[in-house]
Design a protein around this nucleic acid. Structure first.
Lengths: 170, 170
DNA sequence: GCCGTAGTTCAAAAAAACTTGAACAAACTT
DNA sequence: AAGTTTGTTCAAGTTTTTTTGAACTACGGC
């Protein structure tokens, strides 16, 4: 038997060399974004699959648990990174990746960035109160200056996001 | 005794209420960026301190280990988020935060974003090779299209970074 | 109405990331 | 040059995050 050719099929688990590589690519990708490995595996496999895949397909092909696949798909749906495909008469649901940058970036900003910016802003208000309550130290001036700086950072962030979104979307 | 006033000093560890709150703010901040908690603590305390602090100050005030403080300061230096202050005749080194957005954003992009973009690009080349080696399946066309898409994502990212940097810096 | 398949949930196990602390190196002091 | 002080390194310990798997719900066909 000849196993030397780098042809399709029969890699470590049940993935082709190409699938394996694409999955690895996305695993690294999502790690940068601070998302769990399984999201990268799932999205990566969907990304390089000509046809939609079901939860069971993902479990079988990636060798991950049903729980992981289920939770991973949910997160990806919420992020707008996958969509359900027409499940032709089949009871189970099949998934396709969003392959345009726009929904991906949009979803990430909406779900992961904006909430943090918002909570940051409200914490900033509390901070300002605390600084004002701070006894009339010599430092008061300094504290308020620094907090003002934080405020300007937040505002700058708020201005940048839409531009970012416009540049990456479309 | 009267502990009701929200005045300075005497909080949980040795931090004032304000320091505590600013540190918490940055702890959350760095988490979003995928950096360890201790970086947020250190940077946060420096940020709200009128005078530069030494490694020992940080250990004492934050109640973290010397190891953490040392490694944390190193990372912050590499990121350009802290600078050494003039250590007036003292043997030990004192640190000040960079409080302008420019060096902070610049450092983060240089150290955390660019390297990933670069390695992504080189992996992409390998991926392209693998796809071409893939037997002349019906799918070949499809694979190459998807990989081309990845390539365009990377390029888009490369275009966006300088704009981002320009908007946030200054 | 019962059985089988699809998918969700969540407590416990496993893995990954971070922090500690003790040993070490370097550099100043006396 | 012996002793201090400052800071670094890294293996082991701790904490946090992620994954697993078994119990459960829901739906559909028979």
């Amino acid at each position: 038997m000849d196993f030397t050719s780098p042809q399709s099929e029969a890699e470590p688990n049940g993935l082709t060399a190409l699938q394996e590589q694409v999955v690895g690519y996305f695993v690294d990708g999502v790690r940068v974004l601070g998302l769990p490995r399984s999201l990268g595996e799932i999205y990566g496999l969907l990304f390089i699959s000509p046809d939609p895949l079901s939860l069971d397909d993902l479990v079988r092909l990636l060798g991950i648990s049903k729980g992981s696949a289920s939770q991973g798909l949910r997160t990806l749906r919420v992020l707008g990174a996958v969509k359900e495909a027409e499940n032709n008469g089949d009871r189970r649901t099949y998934y396709q990746p969003s392959v345009e940058l726009k929904p991906l970036v949009g979803g990430f900003i909406r779900e992961q960035v904006r909430p943090h910016l918002e909570s940051g802003k409200s914490k900033l208000r509390l901070l300002q109160d605390t600084a004002k309550e701070t006894a009339d130290h010599d430092d008061r001036e300094f504290f308020l200056d620094r907090i003002g700086r934080l405020d300007s950072w937040m505002k700058r962030g708020g201005q940048v996001l839409p531009v970012l979104q416009k540049m990456l979307g479309q």
